[in-house]
């Protein structure tokens, strides 16, 4: 099993000597077994991974490979049955209580009775930000996701892609430097998805957040990530971790370069290898 860890430092500090910055997320030997009516399901087996500040890490694999489960473990939405996970040096649950991460689900999950601005304010209200701070932050993140002027609209007045952008804005509104995204564009058509991928990369460059991104699309994973974690089912485990050699600046056309195609090829090989003794 490939359990390589990244020692790569933040690209913006390349000139500085490689001071061992503490990893943002560190998983050691994580195991998770669900007890179901059909007997135990081994969702995660001996998962080891280190995510550093500013990484964009994609998790890819067929359904049932535990990619979403692993993301939920990081978010303290699931409790691992073995191994340790730290988020910002804390347990995931402490990190959750410190509001260390923003989580974007597959569905936008906007409240139909709140306007877009009020939806984005929701976590801020819960976290006790003042009214002035809320207004200011909403304007800021609406701009960040290109939704200026839509604050007073209700969710049903927006397209699916815009709703998903609003939900990303909501996850960005508070000061979490980790963004966990669970197939956020999975329900959108490919044109909208391309557009949002491009925007997400810009947003990542501007905010320097650490992003964990679950997807089942190979091009999406290769296009977005600095690191691609390939996973495989029964039991859910990591089969390959691929460092992307693509530059940080990525126009959509980069997907036609040989470099891109080669990384995609490696991901596909990794996925196939994970399946080899399946059937």
């Amino acid at each position: 099993m490939n359990t390589e860890t990244s020692t790569q430092t933040d690209p913006s500090h390349v000139a500085a000597p490689p001071v061992a910055a503490p990893p943002v997320i560190e998983a050691r030997g994580v195991d998770l077994t669900f007890q179901t009516n059909d007997g135990p399901v081994h969702a995660l087996k001996d998962v080891n991974l280190t995510i550093n500040k500013g990484d964009f890490v994609s998790f890819i694999g067929p359904s049932g490979c535990g990619k979403t489960t692993f993301l939920r473990v990081m978010a303290a939405l699931e409790q691992p049955t073995g191994g340790t996970v730290t988020v910002n040096g804390m347990t995931p649950d402490e990190a959750r209580r410190n509001r260390a991460y923003g989580y974007v689900f597959q569905a936008a999950g906007l409240y139909p009775w709140r306007t877009i601005a009020k939806n984005i304010m929701l976590p801020l209200e819960i976290m006790g930000y003042s009214r002035a701070q809320r207004e200011e932050r909403v304007q800021k993140v609406l701009q960040l996701v290109d939704l200026e002027g839509f604050g007073e609209k209700f969710p049903w007045q927006l397209s699916g892609g815009m709703q998903q952008r609003a939900s990303i804005a909501r996850a960005l509104a508070f000061d979490a430097d980790i963004l966990l995204m669970d197939e956020p564009f999975g329900a959108l058509d490919e044109i909208v998805r391309d557009h949002l991928n491009e925007q997400l990369l810009k947003l990542w460059a501007r905010t320097n957040k650490t992003i964990g991104f679950v997807t089942h699309s190979i091009p999406e994973a290769v296009y977005l990530s600095t690191r691609i974690v390939v996973m495989s089912p029964r039991p859910g485990r990591i089969t390959d971790v691929i460092e992307s050699t693509l530059p940080k600046e990525r126009p959509l056309e980069i997907r036609d370069t040989p470099e891109f195609i080669e990384i995609a090829h490696r991901v596909r090989e990794g996925l196939r290898a994970g399946h080899s003794y399946d059937e």
Binding site: R99, F105, G109, L122, P123, E125, I126
Partner: peptide, 21 residues
């Protein structure tokens, strides 16, 4: 489940969950 999980990621209290969702 998703909406409740989401509130959990914001560490929302039971009161918030009731009144806001």
């Amino acid at each position: 489940r998703m909406q409740l999980d989401q509130l959990r990621t914001w560490n929302a209290s039971g009161g918030d969950t009731f009144w806001k969702l």
